[in-house]
């Protein structure tokens, strides 16, 4: 349905996006995973015809989107990373405004507004001014507005950033329903691996403006088929211990976080003995050790040596 080739965007001297190839089939739910600044939003802006690329092509059903933006726009819904809503107005007024812009009117408009408010769970607060909403509610109205014209293709840019887990779950379930029940094609951007893992059939992993891996979740995890993840919880991290872990043969990546070490190790290597020994040497108290099956987070760690959320 949508095919992107060789996409590039430079802002003055910074290269924000380079060599990006991706495709999306009808009805798919595709994730675009990457840390902050990876170039996700820039890529999305170009796909949604709001930002002209420096180089590359975007084709929708075989037609060049850059030359005919009006082919794609009517079926496209975009949920921007920022809350693109008039905060001074009520949710209802916002939806009415954007609905009218898409040519809806009268009872048809009214029906649509109520249907979508129901969907995003804001029916009872619809007359309240958006500025008085909680972060999660703002995110939901931000999505609601993008659904006013029944889009077939929904692009969502980090729609759950900075909100409470409850609202987040609500949104995730909603997106899953939109894709599953209504058959809306979804391109979902996030730096939360769990979200993409939960929602998406296929995933593109982005870093420093480039796609560094892509495929179904299984394919991606297969990258780690010869590896496994060991999570060590300690009382207190110590640099000496870290150094020993890094230099240990068989440990491919080491990431630290709070009281945790995350190691990616080659499968089959019996490393636990060494690890306990090194902890003893450096006087680090190990509280627990878990061996995990790999996640997409681990894939990213494997590919870049960094965690998604640094």
């Amino acid at each position: 349905m949508l095919e992107v080739k060789n996409l590039k965007k430079t802002f003055k001297k910074t290269v924000a996006v380079e060599d990006v190839d991706l495709y999306i089939e009808e009805g798919e739910s595709v994730g675009l995973l990457g840390p902050n600044g990876a170039g996700k939003s820039t890529t999305i802006s170009m796909i949604s015809t709001l930002l002209p690329p420096t180089k590359g092509t975007i084709k929708y059903k075989g037609k060049d989107v850059l030359k005919n933006p009006d082919e794609l726009r009517p079926i496209l819904g975009v949920v921007p990373q920022d809350i693109a809503i008039y905060g001074e107005l009520s949710a209802y007024a916002n939806m009415k405004f954007f609905g009218k812009i898409y040519g809806l009117s009268g009872s048809q408009l009214e029906k649509k507004i109520q249907e979508i408010l129901e969907l995003v769970g804001l029916s009872d607060r619809q007359k309240d001014v958006v500025d008085t909403y909680s972060g999660g509610m703002k995110r939901r109205i931000n999505i609601a507005v993008a659904l006013m014209h029944n889009p077939e293709f929904l692009i969502m840019d980090e729609p759950t950033v900075g909100i409470d887990p409850q609202s987040r779950n609500y949104i995730l379930n909603m997106v899953k329903r939109l894709n599953g029940e209504k058959g809306i094609t979804i391109l979902y951007t996030s730096h939360y691996m769990e979200e993409v893992e939960k929602l998406c059939d296929r995933v593109y992993i982005m870093d420093h403006g480039r796609i560094i891996a892509s495929g179904t979740k299984e394919e991606l995890k297969n990258i780690l088929s010869n590896e496994e993840t060991i999570v060590i919880e300690v009382a207190e991290r110590k640099q000496a211990f870290t150094d020993l872990l890094v230099s240990q043969k068989g440990i491919n990546q080491v990431a630290e976080e709070e009281n945790n070490y995350q190691l990616i190790v080659s499968k089959g290597d019996q490393l636990l003995g060494e690890i306990f020994e090194q902890a003893r040497q450096t006087n680090v108290k190990i509280k627990s050790i878990h061996i995990q099956t790999p996640t997409l987070e681990d894939v990213f760690l494997h590919l870049t040596g960094r965690k998604l959320r640094d």
Binding site: S48, L50, L76, A84, Y86, Y102
Partner: peptide
């Protein structure tokens, strides 16, 4: 424009 509301309007074909 900053808050992308303008972008939203443009997407509607305005």
């Amino acid at each position: 424009k900053e808050q992308h509301v303008f972008g939203r309007m443009m997407l509607s074909g305005m």
